[in-house]
Design a protein around this nucleic acid. Structure first.
Lengths: 112, 112
DNA sequence: GCGGAATATTCCTTGACAGGAATATTCTTT
DNA sequence: AAAGAATATTCCTGTCAAGGAATATTCCGC
């Protein structure tokens, strides 16, 4: 799992851009307008998102249309799958290490 | 979706802690040892993870056992679901806005 | 090619955060 | 109560990233 994706999504403005682009691809100017960001800020955030693979650009006429790339999100879901059993199997949170400590505690109670 | 979760996972060491705790709950000392982090660093990272709701602490004897909380991960998955159709329905990435621009391009071609 | 629109980049400043070292705190045991 | 183990917090420093302003670049229409 690439942590750059998390870093990209960690900024509220960038998260907002992703949420906005979910509804459809947009040029920079519109994104800036919708999120009330300056144009340079928007471009810079889009750069970070692009470097994380979350967006890709499609030049069209005078504008540059940004659209979401789903691949990183799919990878994110794949990563999440590895945790899924933790809440599906209602796994009891105490693991081996805890059980060992439990035995230590029992020894303590035994002594007192 | 709480962006604090992304921020917490954006740091490689914290991501490593989460991955480690997936295998089972552990006290601070062991976490530090496994990831070759200093004890203070580990405590600080665990603090951030706890504030993001990703871990919770369970005092046991002399130690403090940290365990994963799956709730934020479930919320993350729920959030991802809203994007799922984007790659399941093989949605063509060109949206209304793009089609409008396409028409503009057609006009241009028509003129030349 | 020129003017202008749309976007990208640079420079600067400021704030947030990671890491290290030292210290404080908490709990346990005796 | 005292000592020690385990953990948390504080202080400090360096680095990086976000935001604003200005400028550079790219691309279209004429």
């Amino acid at each position: 799992m690439n942590v750059m994706v998390f870093r990209a999504l960690a900024d509220p403005n960038r998260f907002g851009i992703v949420e906005l682009l979910k509804e459809g691809s947009l040029p920079v100017g519109i994104i800036a307008e919708r999120l009330e960001l300056s144009q340079p800020q928007t471009s810079k955030h889009l750069r970070v998102l692009a470097e994380a693979g979350l967006v890709q650009v499609e030049p069209s006429a005078n504008k540059r249309i940004y659209q979401l790339r789903t691949v990183p999100l799919q990878e994110l879901e794949t990563w999440l799958q590895t945790y899924r059993r933790m809440w599906e199997e209602k796994f009891d949170n105490l693991d081996d290490y805890l059980h060992q400590l439990q035995q230590v505690d029992n020894n303590k109670d035994h002594k007192e």
